[in-house]
């Protein structure tokens, strides 16, 4: 900035407004039953208390409105707050719901079109066998990034969804994904899947010679991978905080 705030005010700078981007979990509602919602929410929060405690959250009413199910936004907000979360926005609400939300100082998130809801499918979780609709867990980005150029030593790749690499990953390279990692070639560098804590993320590769592999923070170094068969396609997944390396064929 070339303008000196002191000259403008004759005093020190008071405030500045900047643009910034945030990642906030979105809770997509599939049911308007407040009792059920509270129950599920409690379950989710108790499973990852650190992640959810005092976390901001945006709730998404698009699915309910598609099914013409009404919901009392004021009561919903109470339920969310009771569980230690801070609702900071509503998305996909109808006119009446937005007015309700605004009355308790919750703005509408208009940053994306209503149709894009379909790109967010609920996370498939085998650990919760239930038939009724469930709230969406955390932020699961389902987009995949494709890499066709060799990943050379010293290069780093970070993607928020899945990572698919057709070429080799050299020693000294680092590939990270919030989702799964697929390497249809030799993996010699470091591969970290589920870096935001997704324990269901997996790593797949054609030839495992990695320096380090990690899923959701649990890792193994090449020292621990000595016994793994070379030149065989393998998958790596997490089971009770242990990384399991298994041949695919």
């Amino acid at each position: 900035m070339s303008i000196d705030p002191e000259k403008m005010h004759g005093a020190q700078s008071v405030l500045e407004i900047k643009s910034s981007t945030f990642f906030v979990p979105v809770m997509v509602l599939y049911s308007n039953d407040l009792v059920l919602i509270e129950q599920k929410l409690q379950q989710k929060v108790s499973r990852a208390p650190e992640f959810f405690s005092n976390s901001p959250i945006v709730f998404d009413l698009q699915e309910l409105n598609n099914k013409h199910q009404e919901i009392d936004v004021i009561k919903l907000v109470e339920v969310i707050r009771k569980n230690g979360l801070f609702p900071i926005g509503v998305r996909g609400g109808n006119e009446c719901q937005v007015v309700q939300a605004n009355s308790i100082y919750i703005p509408e998130d208009t940053t994306r079109g209503n149709q894009s809801i379909t790109t967010e499918t609920p996370k498939i979780s085998t650990s919760v066998p239930e038939s009724q609709p469930k709230t969406k867990e955390e932020i699961v980005n389902n987009t995949a990034t494709l890499i066709t150029q060799p990943v050379r030593s010293g290069q780093r790749i970070y993607v928020s969804g899945d990572l698919i690499i057709l070429t080799q990953v050299s020693a000294g390279a680092e590939i990270m994904a919030e989702g799964n990692i697929h390497v249809y070639n030799t993996l010699r560098g470091r591969a970290l899947a589920g870096v935001q804590g997704n324990t269901d993320a997996r790593i797949f590769c054609f030839d495992l010679q990695a320096e380090l592999i990690s899923i959701a923070g649990d890792y193994k170094t090449s020292e621990d991978l000595k016994e793994v068969a070379r030149k065989k396609p393998v998958q790596i997944y997490l089971q009770n905080h242990a990384l399991i390396v298994k041949e695919l064929i």
Partner: peptide, 24 residues
């Protein structure tokens, strides 16, 4: 070999051709 590999990574990402999105 490893240093060459590193250099190849730099060629692929920090050259004018890479920055302008031209043919590598």
């Amino acid at each position: 070999v490893r240093d060459s590999d590193r250099m190849l990574g730099i060629l692929a990402s920090k050259s004018r051709r890479a920055e302008l999105g031209m043919e590598p």
